[in-house]
């Protein structure tokens, strides 16, 4: 089993943090082999950033992603640039408000998640990344959900409850998106 995901956004949205939390969950709480690599543009805030996560039952040689099982994007170019990397059987989790999905209407791999507005309703905009992560794991790697709760609790000990709530909100949004489909959302 090999699973490859890219979580991408703009500097400050927490794409890389989400990747670390996901990787920690799989490595330490599921006992998998995991490599997380990260990249960012050379700007302080607002440039692109991404975390790439490879999870495997076997030791990982080539550490980078090549074909994505899951793409999470919180900005427009994140979809435009990375769409071609997603496997036919992969999924794409796009933030509904920040990504225009008109070009992928009918693509059954795409799920629009209103993570930004739900994060606001939970009282903290910075929860968007964790909500997106919850949605992605619910759709693509559901067995990682419990390990993920442990990992966010360790990563954010002072805001553990809120982050677990954000994960659960992501799971609920994923299930709605799955039933509703993208056609109804855009």
């Amino acid at each position: 089993m090999k699973f490859e995901a890219r979580i991408t956004g703009l500097g400050g949205q927490g794409a890389i943090t989400a990747g670390h939390v996901f990787g920690t969950a799989a490595a330490l709480h599921e006992g998998k082999e995991v490599v997380v690599t990260e990249g960012y543009s050379p700007y302080v805030t607002g440039g692109w950033s991404r975390a790439d996560v490879v999870i495997s039952d076997e030791p990982i040689d080539y550490p980078l992603v090549s074909k994505l099982d899951a793409l999470v994007t919180m900005y427009q170019e994140g979809l435009d640039i990375n769409l071609k990397m997603v496997k036919p059987s992969g999924i794409i989790i796009a933030e509904q408000r920040l990504v225009d999905l008109s070009r992928v209407v009918g693509d059954k791999r795409v799920f629009a998640i209103p993570a930004a507005s739900v994060a606001e309703s939970l009282g903290k905009k910075v929860l968007m990344n964790i909500i997106m992560l919850g949605s992605m794991v619910a759709l693509a790697s559901p067995h990682t959900l419990e390990p993920l709760k442990k990992a966010v609790t360790e990563r954010f000990p002072k805001a553990a409850e809120l982050n677990v709530k954000a994960l659960e909100a992501g799971v609920a949004l994923a299930s709605q998106a799955k039933q509703g489909g993208i056609e109804k959302l855009v």
């Binding site: 670390h20 990787g23 995991v34 490599v35 997380v36 690599t37 990260e38 550490p63």
Partner: peptide
């Protein structure tokens, strides 16, 4: 850069 910024066990 890959090894320096990579996360692993």
């Amino acid at each position: 850069q890959v090894v320096g910024m990579m996360w692993e066990k």
